[in-house]
Design a protein around this nucleic acid. Sequence first.
DNA 1: GGATAACTGTTGTCATACAACTTATTTCCG
DNA 2: CGGAAATAAGTTGTATGACAACAGTTATCC
Lengths: 250, 250
Amino acid sequence: MPARTVRSDRTLRRPGENLGRLLAENLRVKIMGGEYLPGARLPSEAQITEEYGVSRVTVRTAMKLLESQGLVDVRHGSGSYVCDFGSGIMAGLQELRSMSASIRDMGMTPEIERRVVVRRKPTATESGRLQISEDDSVIYIERAVSADGQIVAFSYEVILDTGFPARVVERIGKVSMFHDLEQQGLLPVRALAKVHAVSSKEIGWGRGRPDSGLYLLLDQVHYERHGRPVVYSQTYFVEGRFEFAILRTR
Amino acid sequence: MPARTVRSDRTLRRPGENLGRLLAENLRVKIMGGEYLPGARLPSEAQITEEYGVSRVTVRTAMKLLESQGLVDVRHGSGSYVCDFGSGIMAGLQELRSMSASIRDMGMTPEIERRVVVRRKPTATESGRLQISEDDSVIYIERAVSADGQIVAFSYEVILDTGFPARVVERIGKVSMFHDLEQQGLLPVRALAKVHAVSSKEIGWGRGRPDSGLYLLLDQVHYERHGRPVVYSQTYFVEGRFEFAILRTR
DNA sequence: GGATAACTGTTGTCATACAACTTATTTCCG
DNA sequence: CGGAAATAAGTTGTATGACAACAGTTATCC
């Protein structure tokens, strides 16, 4: 009898989710967990079809998704294979995830210190990036992110304020900002990031500030699933304390 | 009568190509060319099916591919829409393309100057990255890439030497290295790039060398479609002369 | 022995049908 | 008349079955 674990998972009830994505997540966990080693061949689409009790159409969408994420390589007439760099380094920049989750994946403990949290009007630049009027309201935050006690990034963030209750603002960004935003129906699903090398003594604060003043800047706008900008952030990663990888595909 | 332009395109004869990818390329050109504006709804899958004379399965694979590239947004029950940042800035880092092609896309004229081209044994680091023996042979190149006469990057590249004829080595990297490698059956389809901020006066050469010494370093290994490493390169992009964008998706 | 042919298993594509969702319109009821 | 609910039409998501195209292996032939 088929497992049907995928079908019964109620994550499906969230908008934008579907069976294909869910199956992809499932397979992803198995691959990351080492069930299928790099270079190994995955079960055939027919086998996966049986095992999970879904149609081959669904299996194919899942495989194609994993392929686009660089986790597997689907070869016509041969099979699907786990890519060589699949497990280890792979917490790539092209994937939109919370910083704390990425840090946890690397086996380290994340910690977040909020320095500023205010509700205010946006500046001209900010209203431009978020495509809102200068009369609208935003929530401004300054945070420092640490891994195992060492600061890895300083972040300056501007969040679209759709009338957040005060109690939400109170704890926003304390753990995962993604989670907070999802509650408000503003879950970011895409982000366009511009990357720069920056050398400046003006960035950051406190004891954890590096001597070098050398940072990798991610200047990015996050969008929710209908294309509306929800967050504009500038995150300065201390050079050398964070491994940045990008998977580039054809 | 259906156009059938897609089916008759002989690009299909290349390994790894398929109808879905080809159709995606076709639609991509239309989107980039402004035929469908950002935010607009694309024709339904049924309509595209008719127009191109392919099955809906193929249309769906194409759409899903474009979605994974961040060009379109497929919404259940509603339709597929062109993403807002689709046309303009979109020459993202997550896409593996030749530098000269990227520069051309930005409406500038690329120019490449080769400073060194030699066949030699790999160093320990190089043989490690390329997963070859230290007794094997590689081709080492140093290049400077310009856009409209201004140097935008210095690149140090190590190419796996599978016994290239001398006349190939002679002109390798003069225009597009991708093209040269494809001739040898070594076309890179994936690359894993590590990103760093670098401040150094030791990088680069000649008159185009910047005063700041501030670079964005892409330390990357390119892989051909079976996962074999074919190129290890370190490219130093002069900060401020090149806009680097990454599309991050969930 | 070496090229060739046949065979098997795999992914790619096709056709058709229905489920689930979105959107706009219509209907109904207070 | 206003607003909620039902309806309808259009779209993407999933299921099923079939065959084509390709990769690898095995068997065959000269």
